[in-house]
Simulated assay, not measured.
Amino acid sequence: MTNPRSAAALRRFARRVPDIAEVPGGRLIDLPGRGRTYVVDIPGPEGAPALVLLHGTACTAYLNWFPSLAALAERYRVILFDQRWHGRGIRSERFSVDDCADDVVAVLDVLGLDKAVCVGFSLGGVVSLAAAHRHPDRVSGLVLCATPYRFQEKWRERAFHQAFGAFAAAVGPYSFRRIEEFAGRLPELPDIAWAPGGLDRWALTELRSTSGWAITQVIGEVGRFDATDWLSSLNMPTAVVITTRDRAIPVYRQLEMATAIPGATIHLVKGGHAACVLEADQFVPVLVEACGAVAARL
């Protein structure tokens, strides 16, 4: 049962985001040699460029992106999927950013696509960067939202991430067992519709589809990510969406990343780290603008 404080928070959430009736249906897809994940493929206009939307930590593809789908699908083929250890994403013995980056290409292979623009939010931005670095022939462009390019810069950050990484490593095997048990209790497919006024309950269900043990391992792994040495080598069209009220990813670090990637355009959102949902009215138009800036240069 949801306690009164949580219920009040969910009601505030529901008032701040669009209460649409449903999200597009998807299907479980096997990625050969990798595992199974839940993929949504919205066709968009004929011949439109393809976007792969990559969600943030502790989210699912639906929860991160549902306010943006209708606007993006007017102009693009839109693909989204649950990343490893999130929602109905791949369960593996360990979580790694490189595996997530390779999953992007595996999804493109299954869908018969040579290339796509990676659109990432936070963790999804990190995975987008890694995919562009590892597979520059498959990533035609980047849209990086609320994205860090490194974490361990200041001594407090180094202390936190090194300690957290050590803890995550110590509990890794136990985490994997708990995640497997947790995944076994999930319904095979997510709900894609809700009754009027039920958005808060739907969002809570999506949020609860990722285990806390998984989040521990994800944070432990992502904290080691550092693209400093190769950011300037990325040569695909890139747009950086900076969340100017972000308390999780410092604004100056987002700006540093934008200035380090040759030719990247900068797009500002007056919102925090959950702007993709909680300030969707501010975020979605800027996201569409950023995707348009990349598409125009493809």
Rank of each mutant, 00 (worst) to 15 (best):
T2E: 15
R5H: 11
R15G: 13
R15E: 15
R16C: 14
E22W: 14
G26V: 07
L31E: 06
V39W: 14
V40A: 04
I42F: 04
P45W: 11
E46G: 03
P49Y: 09
A50M: 04
L51P: 12
V52S: 01
H55C: 01
A58M: 14
Y62N: 08
A71E: 10
L72G: 01
R75Y: 08
V78Q: 02
S92F: 13
R94G: 05
F95C: 07
D102E: 09
V105E: 10
D114N: 00
K115V: 09
V117W: 05
S122G: 00
G124C: 05
L142F: 05
T147A: 08
Y149V: 06
Q152L: 07
W155N: 03
A166V: 08
G172I: 10
R177C: 10
G184R: 10
G198V: 09
W202Q: 07
E206V: 06
L207E: 13
S209W: 12
T210E: 12
S211Q: 09
T216A: 10
D229R: 07
S232K: 10
V241S: 07
T243N: 07
T243I: 03
P250D: 02
Q254E: 11
A260F: 04
A264M: 04
H267C: 00
V269S: 03
H273S: 03
V277P: 09
V277Q: 15
V286Y: 04
E289I: 08
C291D: 04
A293P: 13
V294C: 10
